[in-house]
Design a protein around this nucleic acid. Structure first.
Lengths: 191, 191
DNA sequence: GTCTATAGACAGATAGAC
DNA sequence: GTCTATCTGTCTATAGAC
């Protein structure tokens, strides 16, 4: 892996663990095994490195979600697969956590990928729910937009509960709960 | 307000806005209008101040939630009142945001109130849901524990979505969505 | 490209005068 | 109780040699 690559990966790890404010250039260099001068040769500074790191994480997150979204199965099956997918629950969401970082939210460049990724997730889920409703799989009373927001929120909030409890249990419960609620909106008629 | 009081309030504000890592003793003093020596006379240091601040915020959060929980009305009404209560959505949850602060989570004293408050919220909501189920108001198939975790997660995740979008809209949608899902589990039989 | 040196500002306190 | 001085270390770079 190139020096620049190692710096970006190191920054991704640290942003996930400690956030933007809690991540120093020195820590990034040490984790990457790269010297000070080398870092400033490849990147203009901390914001520049963070931008590269956040963009890559956002890209990766979409790609992983799209794996479940575009798989075969009806709406409920694909959403279940997405929610039940293996995750590093106790580490939290590497994108969602950035919303708590005032310096990230204050910089339009850093903020954009965070905003876009979560908006994309909601839109994509809303599409899948709308499709399920049209096919008669889901109750006509179900609001795709609102329900999509709920699903993403359960995920993001589940991470918060898991970190607070230092256990993945409340995350799993929250997922179980929302899937149970969604099941009641599923048509019992044959597909 | 006493000097000590002003320091605690100032710390509460800053922890909410910038988190533990992002909050310096100097910033606390300036916002409180209190000198350095004065601060260290009343508090041992930053962790001590943070402990006082977090405990107060946790206490306040429980009291406000209990207002809706112990009000009159059936389970759905009380949960709706809790979720629809006026909130400073764009500021996020002052307790939930601390789960992203590694230094807070690493200190058992600072971590305890965060863990306990969110656990208490889940337990309290589970009680209310169980009660509603016993009364026949809610579907017998509904899992009170899991659903309670879902409700708290929607709240915590709703804050994340709102901050990402810089708009309360996705928060409101997430609430609308979960209440819509819950409605399908509500018995249509007379109470 | 990578290294070391340097630098001004801030973090998080301690000490002692008043 | 509050104030000012002082201190060690870190933050986030810049400069210039190799």
């Amino acid at each position: 892996m190139s020096t620049a690559e190692r710096l970006v990966e190191s920054t991704r790890d640290l942003l996930w663990e400690r956030g933007y404010i809690g991540t120093s250039p020195k820590a990034i260099q040490q984790r990457a095994g790269v010297g000070q001068g080398s870092m400033y040769h490849h990147f203009a500074g901390k914001p520049d490195l963070a931008l590269a790191a956040i963009n890559r994480t956002a890209q990766e997150m979409r790609a992983k979600a799209e794996e479940q979204f575009s798989a075969s199965g009806d709406a409920t099956e694909r959403i279940t697969a997405y929610l039940r997918r293996e995750r590093e629950v106790l580490k939290g969401c590497p994108i969602g956590r950035l919303t708590q970082d005032p310096d990230v939210m204050a910089d339009p460049m850093l903020r954009a990928p965070v905003e876009e990724t979560l908006a994309w997730l909601r839109d994509r889920l809303a599409e899948i729910l709308a499709e399920g409703r049209e096919r008669g799989e889901l109750d006509a009373a179900l609001d795709p937009q609102a329900t999509a927001a709920t699903v993403v929120a359960v995920l993001q909030g589940g991470y918060v509960l898991a970190r607070a409890a230092d256990s993945p249990a409340p995350f799993d419960q929250a997922i179980t709960g929302v899937l149970g609620l969604l099941a009641a909106h599923t048509s019992t008629a044959p597909k």
